[in-house]
Design a binder for these strands. Structure first.
Length: 467
RNA sequence: GGUGGGGUGGCAGAGUGGUCGAAUGCGCCGGUCUUGAAAACCGGUAAAUCCGUCAGGGUUUCAGGGGUUCGAAUCCCCUCCCCACCGCCA
């Protein structure tokens, strides 16, 4: 949600932002409706003020007259009756007009809210302008000394790599057939060491965030109300991506939705709260199942573990004071935590500064982290894949966009003693099984086995190898 | 699923038609006292929104929505939520 007052003050900023993000938003209509609404509101409130004044004036008077009525004689009674009627009639004319005005405002409000929900947060000025993923800008690349993604896998390792598909098949780590049998496309069953590795990497990432980076571990609901999805900014734009559970007819009055990320639960925690700024920043980490319909992705990455309907993700969220500098510092830190993690895992990665067209409605800024997956990408001359950078993480900076929607505020010195929407940020820590792709493909050996990265061995009973 | 009891400010809790944005206590902030702290005492302490350059003023809000009334925290209707007990249950 954007700030309506900010929109009034500088509509061009929001028009420009929507254009850069390639999201349609009718700013002029909003301004026009808002202007009309405020006129009605001002008139209604003026009249109501008058009505209140009259009621306050005549109330006690009426009370006195009614009391006197009981003991009065017939003649006096008639006089009192007339006086009472007169007093009662005074606010009557006002009432009709007030009701008309308020009725009109009630008609307008939902329309205005709906329009406002669709206005995207303008991208920060330093975000490169672009149409989509193809215009994202590489910020930096890291790779371990013994492996450079710029050179071929075969040249560096002395054999042609298998894809993760082949590896999981040969080592018995995943059964796609049985997953699909039960749950349809994009489903899978992790088996044996596949499941162990999956759990190990999640556990490793989660513990790192808690023990080393001081994040508070939390479990969150993954079944939430629509309100929570709207509040966190995933709805209305992303409605198609969420699984919908029909529950309203069972008496609860609400339908529920499966969340696509732990971010929803972590941010929803403090919905409608006013936090003391001294309790900030809140640093939360959760591990949760994530559900995505992948609507509109038909035919894309259908094979393998890359794009699936259900997965597990360790997610980090920071809620901080509404201060641009502080937000930016946290963004960098949260990216740093992931870089550290990927280095420990020995996985080559690169940072991508996403362009305006790739930000989505809620972000002011977003940095993706891509890991090197040797088994992806176009086929080379020998028919084997040449490898590709593929997204494994995404770090968002939202300013107060999300907190405004969630009605999550901070109060303290920095806000001048008044409540103000907080700032929020989020970033993936690790998502599995997707991260198993680079892990298996990078750590495969010529004999078909896979070395377990040192960092994960404590979570795999000390073993150093699969297969 | 059944029965009963409830939803009031950051928290606890009073308030059953006007003098109620709401007693009181706790918490929090400031002050007095003190070498400092605690205690005690004094004062302050909801949010949203509109008008206004400011000073300031108005409106709304006692779970949410609708109604009765000149006037609703208080009366009526609907919805949601919470608690207790019973049933079922990982």
């Amino acid at each position: 949600m954007i700030d309506l007052k900010a929109l009034r003050d500088d509509p061009d900023r929001f028009k420009d932002g929507a254009r850069k993000k390639r999201i349609a938003a009718d700013i002029d209509q909003i301004l026009q409706i808002d202007d009309h609404r405020r006129r009605l509101l001002t008139e209604a409130e003026t009249l109501r003020s008058e009505q209140n004044r009259l009621a306050k004036e005549s109330g006690p008077q009426m009370g006195r007259l009614s009391a006197e009525m009981k003991t009065a004689d017939a003649g006096r009674k008639a006089a009192i009756e007339a006086e009472l009627a007169e007093l009662r009639n005074r606010p009557a004319a006002l009432k009709a007009r007030i009701q008309a005005l308020e009725g009109e405002i009630q008609q307008i409000d939902p329309r205005l809210d709906e329009l406002l929900l669709h206005v995207p947060q303008p991208p920060d000025p330093d975000v490169p302008v672009g149409a989509g993923a193809e215009d994202n800008v590489e910020v930096r690349v890291w790779h371990p000394p013994h492996f450079d993604p710029k050179k071929s896998f075969e040249a560096q390792r002395g054999f042609r790599p298998k894809t993760h598909m082949q590896l999981v098949h040969d080592l018995g780590l995943v059964s796609f057939e049985r997953g699909v049998k039960m749950s349809g496309t994009r489903s899978y069953v992790l088996t044996g060491d596949g499941m162990l590795l999956h759990q190990a990497v999640l556990r490793f990432a989660f513990e790192r965030m808690v023990m080393r980076n001081g994040f508070t571990p939390v479990s969150v609901p993954v079944i939430v109300r629509e309100e929570c999805m709207v509040g966190t900014g995933f709805f209305p734009a992303g409605r198609e991506q969420a699984y919908h559970i029909e529950e309203s007819k069972r008496g609860s009055g609400y339908d529920l939705f499966l969340t696509g990320t732990g971010e929803v639960g972590l941010m929803g925690l403090h919905q409608d709260e006013i936090l003391d700024e001294r309790s900030l920043p809140l640093k939360y980490v959760t591990v949760s199942p994530c559900f995505r319909r992948e609507a509109g992705a038909a035919g894309k990455d259908t094979a393998g573990l890359y794009r699936v309907h259900a997965f597990e993700k360790v997610e980090q969220v920071v809620i901080c004071r509404p201060d641009e500098r502080e937000s930016r510092v946290w963004h960098a830190k949260m990216i740093g935590f992931v870089e550290e993690l990927l280095r420990e895992l020995g996985l080559p990665y690169r940072l991508l500064q996403c362009c305006t067209g790739d930000l989505g409605p809620k972000n002011a800024d977003m940095v993706d982290i891509e890991s090197w997956m040797p088994g992806r990408g176009d086929a080379g001359p020998d028919g084997a894949p040449t490898g590709a950078w593929s997204e494994t993480h995404s770090a968002s900076r939202l300013y107060d966009f999300q907190c405004r929607r969630l009605n999550l505020r901070v109060k303290g010195e920095s806000t001048g003693g008044r409540p103000a929407p907080a700032h929020s940020l989020n970033n993936t820590v690790i998502a599995s099984p997707r991260v198993l792709i680079p892990l298996l493909e990078m750590y495969q050996n010529q004999d078909g086995s896979v070395t377990i990265p040192e960092a994960l061995r404590p979570y795999m009973a000390g073993r150093d190898r699969i297969g």
